[in-house]
């Protein structure tokens, strides 16, 4: 009995020390972001004792963070909506409609997931540039408006739906678009949620593409803005940590809200967006 107790204690000890390492940067970030000037290096490091909220106000107004935040929000929502809708449409055609070359097309789409991003980076930049889309929302959104991963998710989900649902409607003379929007999509909320959380996190966290296709401070996203802010105001630890907290918070909130869907998405497909 005692050995069993000891084992349990040991497991919790190991898990807790790991969890501490996982959580430590967040704890330190939040604690530091709330410290008054002059107390930055003082203990405690991981438990906020001070609540100097004006750091947040200051960080928010030091750099154009409201604008960065807005840009990221527009980009992330735009990408999430378009990836979900357009990938669902494509996934439906690949799962349910019969046409020659369907499997080839599906494999080609899957194949685009294997292309490393650096390969497409330069040509995509040139295309966006020649369209005059540098420093625009369409430049940030359109190149990522469809996700092969989401198409895959939707296709697998639609394959699992019983065909009878659609066949009755087809006999009644409904067309495929009506069926898709009235019957299929309302049944698809689990897969829509999974796809949306992947898209949102991908878009919110994205850095290299926004860095490359935006030039003016006005159009920078929040990740690019944070990297810039760090270069300029790096000596103000408290402000920088307040800014980092603002940047991380939406990702963590989105994840906590949709955690189950997210983890399901990873484990059922074994892939990441």
């Amino acid at each position: 009995m005692k050995a069993k107790h000891f084992k349990k204690l040991l497991i919790h000890g190991l898990l807790l020390s790991g969890a501490f390492i996982a959580a430590m940067p967040f704890l330190w970030m939040i604690t530091t972001s709330l410290k008054p000037p002059g107390k930055v290096y003082d203990a405690p490091l991981f438990v906020p004792l001070y609540f100097y909220w004006s750091n947040y106000v200051k960080a928010w107004s030091f750099a154009p963070f409201p604008r960065f935040f807005l840009n990221s929000a527009i980009m992330a929502i735009g990408i999430t909506l378009s990836q979900t809708l357009l990938s669902a449409l494509a996934g439906y055609a690949l799962a349910r409609l019969k046409f020659p070359g369907r499997n080839t097309l599906f494999f080609l789409i899957l194949g685009t997931m294997m292309i490393p991003f650096p390969i497409t980076l330069i040509p995509s930049f040139l295309i966006v540039n020649s369209l005059g889309w540098i420093d625009t929302y369409q430049g940030l959104i359109v190149p990522r408006a469809v996700s092969a991963f989401a198409i895959f998710l939707f296709r697998q989900f639609f394959l699992s739906l019983p065909r009878e649902l659609e066949e009755a409607a087809l006999i009644d003379g409904a067309n495929r678009f009506t069926i898709f929007f009235r019957i299929i999509l309302p049944l698809s909320s689990p897969v829509i949620a999974t796809s949306a959380i992947f898209s949102f996190l991908f878009a919110w966290n994205d850095f290299l593409w926004p860095l490359v296709v935006t030039n003016s401070t006005r159009m920078r996203t929040i990740q690019v803005g944070l990297a810039m802010f760090q270069g300029q105001y790096g000596i103000f630890w408290t402000l920088l940590m307040a800014a980092s907290t603002i940047v991380i918070a939406p990702a963590i909130i989105a994840f906590l809200v949709a955690q189950r869907r997210f983890v399901e998405g990873i484990t059922t497909t074994g892939l990441r967006g």
Partner: peptide
């Protein structure tokens, strides 16, 4: 075969975006 035109419209946005910004760039680069 008769579902081909419907499938075309369902797939058009995906093919356009993935074609322009994934597939074509792989060869372009």
């Amino acid at each position: 075969l008769q579902e081909f035109p419907v499938a075309f419209w369902f797939l058009l946005p995906a093919i356009l975006v993935l074609g322009t910004f994934n597939f074509y760039p792989a060869f372009y680069s």
